[in-house]
Each structure stands twice: as structure tokens, then as C-alpha cells.
Write a protein that binds this DNA or RNA. Structure first.
Length: 299
DNA sequence: CACGCGTGGGG
DNA sequence: TCCCCAAGCGT
């Protein structure tokens, strides 16, 4: 059974007032600059949330404006991304900057945002809610858990889930959706935990339809033979990227074995990186970080 | 739609 | 020291 309007309003009220006293928002999310918010949201998908402020500020000090990122060489973006993981996301962020700079700025409506490279349903709604006046709730895995529990714990597929989440947004004032989302994420990380939620201290306990009847532990895990990390593609790609970062514009000849990968595997990996736009082959036969994005922006 | 993507931090 | 983990997006 769907929540009534008054139940939704009550939940919104409780959540926002709880947030006022006990939330620890990302500073970066309190900016109204859609560019800064986009950078922070992309990073928040791959790094400890508590470190996003530090990483985002570092990145933003190197590329303070959308224009500066849009005009940057791919190599410099990848250098600034060192240590942050998921290098393809740096490429996508760069391409999103190029595309939106050409449009005159980062859009703040969901549809235009979602058309940008690397920006999907979550990121689009997060930027629209935080930097714009969007009222659609960005649903990440944490907010999904909170919302599903609030309505009774039934697992919802993405589309119905988004619709239920938007039901909360529809009763918010303009500008509140971003805080609602931040509050729900904080609640998910501190109280409405995946494994052992602390319902007794939850500000929403009086209105939650799953209070006290959350299934105990869910375990999947194991199986999958233990694979040495040095034998994985991720490890190899990460090492090759760092070699390219260290080499600079002169590039480096990539030959020989790395960890558990023979020379042929290394050649194959560097060619794959080249195909993805993460490496550039130069005349000498060496590779370096690409000076410019080698692939077109997809649209 | 199932899978691949990177890294640093915590147990 | 070793093992486990995060989490949205593109393909």
C-alpha cells in the first residue's frame, strides 16, 4: 500500500529536522556551482564518502572552472586523477565538461544532465537537486535501502523505486531535495545500515513500515577462488597507467612482463587502454597519456 | 543484463 | 600482512 500524503510529509519533516542537528554534509555539496557538484558526485561513486571533500577540493584547485577542465589535455586530467581509481570516469568527466562547456554550462535539468557522458540516473538527479531546483530524488544504493524500508521492505525495480522516491520529492519545497537526499544518505550510513540497522535510534522509527522487522544478515560471498590481485586486469591497468603518469610527455616503451602477466598480456592491455582513450601511442613506439581525448563524445 | 572498472582504508 | 570492500555507469 502506498504511503499517504500526510505520511510522506511527516517523513520529510522528521528527516529534514534530524539532518539539521546531526548530519555531516559534504562541504562540496553545499556549493551551488553545478560543476563542483558534478565533480563531487562522480567522486562519491568510487571513494569513501568522507574523503570526497578532500579529493574534490584537490581536483578543483587544479581545474577550478568548467572552462578550465573543458580545455585541459586528457593527460593533465588523468594526472590529477592519480590515486582516485576508475580512470575511465576521469575521461568521462572530462568529456562531460567538454560537452557541457560547448552548451554554455552544466545544465541543471535531469534530461540534459543524463545526456552527458558518465552521467546516469543518480548523478543527473543529484546535480539537479543540489545545484538546481530539481525535486527528483537521486537514488543510490543507500537511498534505495532507506526508501524501500520506509514503504515496507519489498524490493523494487529501479523504475518503481525512482517513482516512490520522487513521491517524497513532490512534497518538498524547491531546494530541499538536495538536503533530503543528503539526509537519507547519512541516515543510511549511520543508522539504517544494510546489515544491522539501529531502528531504536532512527528518527523515522515512528513512521517506518519495516521498523524492527528487517531481515538479519544477508550473506552471499565466498565461492570465487581467491585470485591474486597481481594477476588481474585491474592491477595491470593500474600499474600501466601509473607508468604513463610517471613518464610524462616523452612516454615510455611498454614491454616485458608485469606481475603475473607475460609480455603478450601487457601488450594487449596497453592496446586496450589505447582503445579506451587512456593511452596514446607515439611515433617512437612508446606510449604516453593522451594529449587529447581520442574518442568522440558519445551522444 | 551481467560484467568490468581502481584504489586506499579497515578488520 | 592479507583479505575484503565500496557503487554508479557503459558496454
Amino acid at each position: 500500500m502506498a504511503l499517504t500524503a500526510s505520511e510522506i510529509k511527516q517523513i520529510n519533516r522528521l528527516l529534514l529536522s534530524w539532518y539539521k542537528v546531526s548530519a555531516r554534509p559534504l562541504k562540496i555539496r553545499e556549493r551551488s556551482d553545478p560543476y563542483a557538484v558534478l565533480v563531487a558526485e562522480v567522486m562519491s561513486q568510487q571513494t569513501q564518502i568522507s574523503r570526497v571533500d578532500v579529493f574534490a577540493e584537490r581536483f578543483l584547485s587544479r581545474f577550478p572552472t568548467l572552462r578550465s577542465l573543458a580545455r585541459a589535455e586528457t593527460a593533465d586530467v588523468l594526472q590529477a586523477w592519480r590515486g582516485l581509481g576508475y580512470n575511465r570516469r576521469a575521461l568521462l568527466l572530462h568529456r562531460a565538461a567538454v560537452a557541457s562547456h560547448a552548451l554554455g554550462g552544466i545544465p541543471t535539468d535531469v534530461d540534459s544532465l543524463e545526456a552527458l557522458p558518465g552521467v546516469g540516473p543518480y548523478t543527473a538527479r543529484a546535480v539537479a537537486a543540489i545545484a538546481g531546483d530539481g525535486r527528483e530524488i537521486p537514488v543510490d544504493v543507500n537511498i534505495a535501502r532507506v526508501v524501500q524500508r520506509l514503504v515496507g521492505g519489498r524490493r523494487l525495480t529501479p523504475k518503481p523505486l525512482q517513482a516512490v522516491a520522487n513521491g517524497f520529492g513532490a512534497h518538498l519545497k524547491p531546494g530541499e531535495a538536495g538536503r533530503w537526499a543528503q539526509a537519507a544518505m547519512d541516515l543510511a550510513g549511520s543508522t539504517c545500515l544494510s546489515v544491522r540497522p539501529d531502528c531504536s535510534s532512527c528518527p523515522l522509527r515512528s513512521v517506518c513500515r519495516s521498523k524492527g522487522r528487517v531481515r538479519a544478515t544477508r550473506k552471499k560471498r565466498s565461492a570465487a577462488s581467491t585470485v591474486k590481485f597481481e594477476t588481474t586486469q585491474r592491477w595491470l591497468r593500474g600499474r600501466l597507467l601509473d607508468e604513463l603518469r610517471d613518464a610524462g610527455v616523452a612516454g615510455v616503451r611498454v614491454r616485458g612482463a608485469r606481475g603475473g602477466h607475460d609480455a603478450a598480456a601487457v601488450r594487449s592491455a596497453i592496446r586496450r587502454l589505447e582503445g579506451e582513450g587512456l593511452a596514446e601511442r607515439i611515433d617512437s613506439g612508446a606510449y604516453r597519456l593522451p594529449r587529447r581525448s581520442s574518442r568522440k563524445v558519445r551522444r
